[in-house]
Every structure is written in C-alpha cells, then in structure tokens.
Computed example of a mutant assay.
Amino acid sequence: MADFAFDLKPKPRTALIPPPAAVSLARSLITELANTWHKGSSYPLGVQAYSRKLLGEKWFARISIHDEPWDWFKAGICDNHSQNEVDYIDTFESYSEIDPGESGWKGIHARYRLGFPLSIREMPEWILAIQPDPDVKEFFVISVPADVPVSKNTVRGRYASIEYLQELPDGKMKWTMAFTSDGGGFIPRFIQNLALPSTIAKDVPKFLTWAKKKYAAEQS
C-alpha cells in the first residue's frame, strides 16, 4: 500500500492494491474533505465545491445531498459506470475495455472530444466500483491513470478520482466526488483548473436529469 497513491502517475496493473485497501485509503480522503479542504463556490442543487493541494497536485471536490432514491445512484454510477457516463457527460465520447477486471479493477480507454481546436483526449484508467458491504447503502468509484499506450492521433490525459455515495440517517443521499486531472496538450494546467469546479458541479444536474428519464420510466 505504501507505493500506491491517488496521484496522476500512470500505474501498471501490478501497482494496484486490493479493493479493501483502496477503499480504506479512499474513505480516509473523503472523511477529511469537508473539514480540511478549502471551501469554494456554491452551485445549483446545493452543490458545494472544495479544493486543496494533495501530493503535489491541485484537487477539486464537490458535495451535494439529494432526495432521489438510492437505486438511481447505485445503478447509474456504481453499476456500468463508464457505460452510463457516456450517456450524460457531453464530452465523454466513448470508451473501450483494456482489462476485464478480475481483481475488481477494470481497465478502460476513455475518449473525450473537447471540440475544435483541441485534439481528442484519451485517458486510460483503472476503475474500481464497489459497494463494500451489501447491507450498507454506500459505494465507492475509484479511478487512477493506467500505464498503457494511447491510440494514434490522440493526446494522453490523466485523471484520478474518488466518488462516494452514502445514504444518510434521514434517507437522503450524500454524493461526494473528488478528483485531479491533466488534460495534456498545450493548455496550461492553471487554465484547465479554472474551469474544473464548475464543470464537475454541472455533472450533478446532468446525471439527475438522465437518471430521472431512465429510472423513473422503468419504475412506472
């Protein structure tokens, strides 16, 4: 575990740690977020942004609380995570599997089309989507960069994130997401970072709109 960190260094499969250890590290980061991270702007739907430096990288985070049912978040974010993101994140063009994930970690190439004049970004990732205890309504989705080649004519991007969803005592859902990224290419990191808090805040209404259409229709 000592050699593993939530950073932007691309990792071979051999560097990945067992799911329980990854969950333990992720839980520690999420637990301290609201108390020790810098509080930033607030956004619609009660989304609160945060930021801090972590392992030399600028991290951003958001926390929001929702009335929508657990099943929407579990099915939409934890189950078939990347497949669903393609449907509600505008710039997420497609993904392909590079490793089936027998150990819990699944490898993917995520492709993002950011629009002219920017090149297509490809972000190889290891993703662990896990509900640690089937009797407890909480799950983690952990992503770290994968050390595998990217496709021709694309720019390599790097991305690390932790998403955590938990049911609160009052039955509401608390959604926490923390991440750091480098899109690569010619855009300086400080310029990229300016847009990231509002970008991840907008993902909340995008997901909820998509989930309502998909799951409310299925339940009716």
Score class of each variant (00 low, 15 high):
144 V>F: 01
18 P>T: 01
22 A>C: 02
45 L>E: 15
106 K>P: 10
86 V>Y: 10
112 Y>D: 09
27 R>T: 12
61 A>Y: 03
148 V>S: 09
52 R>T: 12
47 V>E: 08
126 W>M: 02
216 A>D: 15
157 G>R: 09
90 D>P: 14
4 F>C: 01
217 A>M: 11
15 A>D: 10
108 I>C: 14
118 L>N: 06
39 K>F: 08
217 A>T: 10
56 G>Y: 09
50 Y>R: 05
178 A>F: 08
122 E>G: 05
149 P>D: 08
23 V>F: 04
25 L>N: 12
15 A>R: 08
189 R>L: 00
53 K>P: 06
172 K>T: 06
127 I>A: 08
50 Y>F: 03
147 D>N: 11
28 S>V: 13
60 F>S: 05
142 I>A: 02
170 D>I: 06
22 A>F: 00
56 G>I: 01
92 F>N: 07
48 Q>R: 14
133 D>M: 07
181 S>R: 03
37 W>E: 09
23 V>M: 08
79 D>W: 11
214 K>A: 02
56 G>V: 06
150 V>Y: 10
155 V>F: 06
50 Y>H: 10
107 G>Y: 08
201 A>T: 12
212 K>W: 08
84 N>V: 03
46 G>L: 00
44 P>M: 03
120 I>Q: 15
144 V>I: 04
30 I>W: 08
172 K>W: 01
26 A>F: 02
11 K>W: 00
183 G>M: 07
73 F>S: 04
65 I>A: 01
46 G>E: 06
62 R>Q: 12
35 N>P: 06
118 L>T: 15
126 W>N: 13
167 E>V: 03
161 S>M: 00
175 W>G: 02
93 E>I: 04
114 L>M: 11
120 I>W: 12
213 K>Y: 05
